[in-house]
Amino acid sequence: MAWTLNADRPIYTQLVEKIQKDIVSGIYKAGDKIPPVRELATEAAVNPNTMQKALVELERMGLLYTQRTSGRFVTEDGEMINKLKNEMASEQIKIFLENMKQLGYDTEETISIIKELDKEEEE
């Protein structure tokens, strides 16, 4: 299944985001080996050069590292991953709260709605 990609944003930034998501959500755990470029590109149905560019960017960010003969691995640095996870979460929440504000709910009201929904879920 090709990855779902937005048509009007650069592909490689979207690839970076998708792999970041995979890392923070645990699909790729710290220290895991990630598939070779061509395999990832085929799975995502994107150009291998673009995928390579994304992986290089992730390496630059420190999330991935290359071991000369063995391939690419996720960093062992659990703290970095957590930090990224929190950053991504905050980003999502900020966007969400902004959207809620546009609907007319402030932060307090939003939190109460969340609590309500959560209670309903448990019942």
Binding site: A7, D8, R9, P10, I11, Y12, N47, T50, K53
Partner: peptide, 10 residues
């Protein structure tokens, strides 16, 4: 492709 997407936003 990426340059175009970045520059033109589409």
């Amino acid at each position: 492709v990426d340059d175009i997407r970045m520059k033109e936003g589409k």
